[in-house]
Design a protein around this nucleic acid. Sequence first.
DNA 1: GGAAAACCCGCAAACGTTTGCGGAGGTTTT
DNA 2: AAAACCTCCGCAAACGTTTGCGGGTTTTCC
Lengths: 333, 333
Amino acid sequence: MSRATIKDLAKKLGVSPSTISRALSDHPDISENMKEKVRLVAEELNYTKNRRASGLRKNESNIIALIIPEINMFFMPELIYGVNLEAEKSGLSVAIFQSDNSLEKEKELLKYCLEMSFCGVLLCLSVETKNLSHIDKITKKEMPVVLLDKVLNTQNYSTITIEDELAGYQAAEYLHQKGHSSILSIFGNPDLSITNLRKDGFNKALQNYTDFPSKHISLEIENILSLDSELETILTSNKNISAIFCMSDELLVNTHHLLMRMEYKIPEQISLLSISDGFVPYYLYPNISHLHHSGFEVGVVAVNELLENQTDNPNHIKVKTKLFEMESVKEFY
Amino acid sequence: MSRATIKDLAKKLGVSPSTISRALSDHPDISENMKEKVRLVAEELNYTKNRRASGLRKNESNIIALIIPEINMFFMPELIYGVNLEAEKSGLSVAIFQSDNSLEKEKELLKYCLEMSFCGVLLCLSVETKNLSHIDKITKKEMPVVLLDKVLNTQNYSTITIEDELAGYQAAEYLHQKGHSSILSIFGNPDLSITNLRKDGFNKALQNYTDFPSKHISLEIENILSLDSELETILTSNKNISAIFCMSDELLVNTHHLLMRMEYKIPEQISLLSISDGFVPYYLYPNISHLHHSGFEVGVVAVNELLENQTDNPNHIKVKTKLFEMESVKEFY
DNA sequence: GGAAAACCCGCAAACGTTTGCGGAGGTTTT
DNA sequence: AAAACCTCCGCAAACGTTTGCGGGTTTTCC
């Protein structure tokens, strides 16, 4: 037994399918009397509209796709929430797809979205994606695409990203303001643009404050496994370090572990500040002060950009981070 | 300029649309010669199939929906990964939707999935959902539904869940095996079935081991905010407690914080064991031994159940947890 | 009372794809 | 040489919905 169609309702009521269709969409040409009858019989036969047929005929879609490399535990949940909330305001649904960080799968999904005639795609690039040529090749501008979070330089698509440089700047600024002058900063993979942006911002602040001493050690960690030993070496030979800055959650967790193992008291013996997606700082003890980047806002802004900017002038929007003062940084005199 | 259709290719080649369609799907009735010409002109005009039209005509879908209450940082990423991987094996895509823990939105999404003619729905119930009547009311058995993770008792749908009772049992068993006899166990909201299952399992193990002393304190936390004070009271008045068991990540984090604040050394002064989704134990110091429940496996099993069991005999499958021995439990003599 | 509105509904084509059937042309079989 | 067969393709209907147009019936207005 297959689903009831408009034709079934029409037959049952002895009217034409057009009348049913119009009645269901509350068209003024149809009498209230008839509309009521249609509603009743639709209920009775448990009619549900066929969106494939409807979409085909009307050539419109009300679903936007969100393609992400993987659903990690930090940034993505918030981002998805933001996208959902904002899409809902426009009566749109969101379908999420996962590229598993594979360029090949990213292509497949893009093609799929086009074939499904979604009204737009929010794309968070996979790590394998090094340029954007595949997007045009697949979509041929037939479907709007907005890049978010993980992006590449482009003049063809709007991008929504985090204000990484400012976040780095504010981190250094905050530590300076708290009186710290002997600082260890830890950065991640130097191949990633976020690493360099955050580092540039951090260093720019250091230069701005002339009363900042030269006593600033910077660490670049390519492989997280090497953090432990490198960090321990530095800490033991630089007893005067009063604060550590970590540019990411991953570095934060590992740094925190080492500090605990070395029996440092935070923040009494050493202060700790990070840039974070928002959860890890609450798990650790004590809770870690951090510059929070809001996936939520990125999601909201991205949906708006997708829906509103139908021109060929892409915007490049950066979402600011926000300082959360918790318990891991103390005033230093 | 809209997308090229089969008709456009047909016109360009001076053949009929049927030929194009068959050529594209590699039908044996079409000569290799013609197929090649079609491929070329399809490339040239950048043809992409219209899945709405195709699905409408063929009345088949290759996309399964996954409805989840929210994308949290623990269980869901793994689950989504499992679902994706298993669906891909059958050439299916996965669309993820978020109900925001709202029953109303859950209904809307179910309706939407039906209207989109998806080939099936994996449903993780929202917290607001107290019975399953809405599912039948909406889908009318026109679309297979499998419940996973957050489920309710039912004879109408297959369910895939975690072996909660066994997890509780194994936790107690493990602590006993490690020589602990004075144990504090902490459970969450007693309204949730997982709470009671885990608790039942835990207590069952306690009874099995006759050499377990009566010195076992159990705590039920309805509001996480009250954990701190209650726990502190118990710990200060029961100095001989050698191990704490937490039934969830949330309880674990809060318990761990209090222990740190009270300057307990883990595991030297007190052992800590939990049931976990897999991330928190690695963030905390030291890493926490835990019974891990695999969202991944739940996802894999759920897809298989959805695709294979098209009968009216629902299965109720429970996925076992697995012990991860880390650094938070020591032998106690 | 006649004309013009207003109201209500049906006809039929269209969205893009798929597919059963049939048939023209050529090759092989009897 | 007729029959049987194979190859390759077109015709047309169908999936379920929407919508421009047109027309019949009732109401309104001067």
